[in-house]
Design a protein around this nucleic acid. Structure first.
Length: 301
DNA sequence: AAACCAATCAACCGCATGAAA
DNA sequence: ATTTCATGCGGTTGATTGGTT
């Protein structure tokens, strides 16, 4: 079977979306919900490919998209998560309610990448004699043309190798946890003790080992694999200020809602603070994770 | 005012993945 | 076990915007 021809070959619309297209897509999804992207354009009456519709919805039209610039807290979170996970934009975005992977990726490539690469090299803040402007990153590499891909190598040299830890991403398509995942000793939260079959997710929900999670891009970091490493709560990073709650989760009162917003920290801390890992102290950046193995959606190689 | 350049970000592309057949 | 289908992800592109000369 060959690849299905892309939208340009099917004579479909490409490029910027019009207001009308946005309205049609939004209205259709409001009635029929997300999914079946392949058939959606036909059913909704859009002359677009499904992929394009999905992207438009996910990155722009979704009602829970947070507008406005990235806050300092969010930026810190992105930096820490990137250090931890590398270019796992969807997972990073999963920690930032209302932000999309595309947005995070763009923010990294345009703002943070530059910031981080300049930070240790303040002496390199030279001025381009022609433009009288501060040199951008690509200009630091005179042999390279200015484009995103050429900045890759530059950034590489400034970026710490991503910390490898055991983490799993949960998407709506994930049905079962990898067999090798073993939950640490039973831990508790505000609501009592979790069974050993449950895994703590953020947003205050739990997940049965055998059930599907609707949490997209959710992440569990398994402290079992942080053998003897000292980890403090900074590793688990501050929860973003707003949190969308899983519709399937029990409703929460005001107090519990607050608890829920911080559940990611609490739940993670409960893991980290269990009997195996009571040593608290180091900052994230000082941790030696080199001995850890990468289990990000992968089994051992 | 025009030209140039850098920055930004929406959108596209190809590939990987997993479910279903 | 293999193939097909549908979706998601990350890298890249290109249009637009804004600042400078």
């Amino acid at each position: 079977m060959g690849r299905r021809p892309c939208c340009s070959k099917l004579g479909l619309n490409r490029g910027a979306w019009t207001n009308l297209e946005d309205k049609i897509l939004t209205a259709y999804i409001k009635v029929h919900g997300e999914g079946d992207w392949y058939n959606l354009p036909k059913l909704a009456g859009l002359n677009r490919c499904g992929k394009s519709c999905r992207l438009r919805w996910v990155n722009y039209l979704r009602p829970d998209i947070k507008r406005g610039s990235i806050s300092q807290d969010e930026e810190d979170l992105i930096i820490k998560m990137h250090k931890l996970l590398g270019n796992r934009w969807s997972i990073i975005a999963g920690r930032l309610p209302g932000r999309t992977d595309n947005e995070i990726k763009n923010y990294w490539n345009t703002t943070l990448r530059k910031k981080l690469s300049e930070a240790p090299n303040r002496n390199n803040d030279s001025i381009n004699p022609k433009t009288k402007r501060k040199r951008s990153i690509p200009a630091l590499e005179p042999n390279n043309k200015v484009n995103n891909s050429n900045t890759k190598n530059i950034v590489k040299s400034h970026t710490v190798e991503p910390i490898k830890t055991k983490a799993f991403r949960f998407t709506s398509r994930v049905q079962k946890l990898p067999a090798l995942f073993q939950f640490p000793t039973p831990c508790t939260d505000k609501w009592g003790q979790f069974s050993e079959k449950e895994f703590i997710l953020n947003h205050g929900s739990t997940m049965d080992k055998d059930q599907t999670s609707q949490e997209s891009g959710d992440l569990i970091i398994d402290s079992c694999y942080c053998k003897g490493q000292q980890i403090n709560e900074d590793l688990m990073i501050k929860a973003p200020s707003t949190t969308t709650h899983d519709a399937n989760s029990p409703s929460l009162d005001d107090h519990d809602q607050h608890v829920s917003e911080n559940n990611w920290i609490m739940a993670s801390s409960n893991i980290i603070n269990n009997d195996h890992f009571s040593n608290i102290g180091d900052e994230l950046g000082e941790l030696d994770f080199k001995s850890l193995e990468c289990f990000l959606d992968l089994d051992k190689e």
